[in-house]
Design a protein around this nucleic acid. Structure first.
Lengths: 247, 247
DNA sequence: TTAATACATTTGTATGTACATACTAAATAA
DNA sequence: TTATTTAGTATGTACATACAAATGTATTAA
């Protein structure tokens, strides 16, 4: 792995505990710290990173909360043994990320900037009022050979496009960098539906198939009006996986 | 509200930051701190609770992470405005809790202690090996009038029953109190399925309906062998809701 | 051999302190 | 009146320090 920042820059404006967290994430990801094996103890590690134990623990807490690390009093800290393929699923945009992780790329995408929702049927389908001014982005994911297994649409009422956006990147990244919109809290509803002709066509499956339907509401960091609506569909060959932890 | 512990006991063995967290949770729940209104600032609050600001912040961090509180530098800390019906959905057994919250009670329950799985078809259905020694608990939830909207089953290979268990309580509570098994990490898979005759009968719906299928794997706190398999089904009238937060 | 004890190691809890940074509102200057 | 500056307030970051509690290991005693 090249160009990896493997030290902590005390002159940087990025908080030390954030830098430490990111560094540890990289070390875990790059298998520097292997599953099940103990990390160096906190005192040693804090010396190595040239930060205080308190600051280091701030970073460690985060990673423990995110499920990457497991700590045990009197023993030590180790990388959580991954029983599933991904331990990142707690992350807010985990679903899309899992898609990437499983190697299901964006196969194609359609972009419609339509300030009045164009299609009544589609509007009903997504449970959005017809006169809502939206940016509509549809991305189709799937392996090259088979049918589409995934179909995602974003609607966002506040974005003015420049025409230079790269829609193959995650949407939240684009919103943040190009439009300074920081989406923070998301709520999602998951339900099961029967594929009608429209869905079946889009997903290249047959009418009557079981479809996992996922709708997501994203709130802006300033908690004000912004929101949106992400609708995701999935053929029944795919399973949505979540990991959670108690307390 | 009676018998509410509204102070922090420095002689208790329970860590102060945990006590502080629980106390704040109660204050939020009891509407002492109202949605959107600022809490007392950290210095003031730490004095009031007779703990250090650092310890208070430890508790606050947790509540922020859990989405109950929102902090803003230079402004203050406030109770997160709840756009959805429940802010507890991050909790590990959120699904069942949401059921309770929505007023969908346990209508009936069946208990089978069968150390060899009795039914081949059922075993296949739950994707459990036929010779697995399990405790099987089926709880049917639903409103009195309508059909069952929810159907949950637990399989647990390590429990020896006393015969005194109260199966209307949450399962994890029973496991913890009666059997000293502390379930910690859970992983769940959510998929959509078409109801076959067996499912349709159990859920009192028609064959061919879209069913949200949910399977859960629970790991023991000692991270060793324990696990099992929770299978949940749901008629399409119900929607599974999750809330998450970024960062 | 086995059980009990002591010790070292490691994470957990808790406090005090200091300064940085974001925000608000009041005071001041144009 | 309208910007600009300033002061005050609240959270954010960071460190040093001390002791508690759980665990594993080595030592000792039966």
């Amino acid at each position: 792995m090249h160009n990896m920042k493997l030290y902590i820059d005390h002159k940087s404006t990025v908080p030390l505990h954030i830098q430490a967290e990111e560094l540890l994430r990289k070390l875990i990801e790059s298998q520097e710290y292997v599953d099940g094996k103990l990390l160096p103890n906190e005192v040693e590690l804090s010396k190595k990173l040239a930060i205080s134990r308190t600051t280091l623990r701030q970073a460690l807490n985060k990673l423990v909360y995110d499920g990457l690390l497991t700590r045990k009093k009197g023993v030590g800290t180790k990388v959580t043994e991954s029983k599933s393929f991904s331990s990142k699923s707690k992350n807010w945009l985990s679903f899309s990320q899992e898609m990437e992780a499983r190697g299901i790329p964006i196969k194609n995408f359609e972009l419609h900037v339509s300030w009045v929702f164009p299609d009544e049927k589609l509007a009903n389908f997504f449970e959005i009022k017809r006169d809502t001014k939206v940016l509509k982005l549809i991305r189709l994911r799937g392996r090259q050979e088979g049918p589409f297994v995934y179909f995602e649409s974003y609607f966002h009422p506040r974005v003015e496009l420049t025409g230079e956006e790269d829609f193959k990147r995650p949407l939240y990244e684009m919103l943040e960098k190009e439009h300074n919109i920081i989406a923070m809290i998301s709520k999602e509803e998951i339900s099961a539906r029967i594929a009608d002709d429209f869905m079946a066509e889009k997903l290249e499956t047959e009418v009557g198939a079981a479809i996992l339907f996922r709708k997501r509401f994203v709130y802006d960091i300033n908690e004000k009006p912004i929101e949106y609506n992400l609708g995701n569909y999935k053929a029944d060959s795919f399973i949505y996986t979540v990991e959670s932890r108690r307390e």
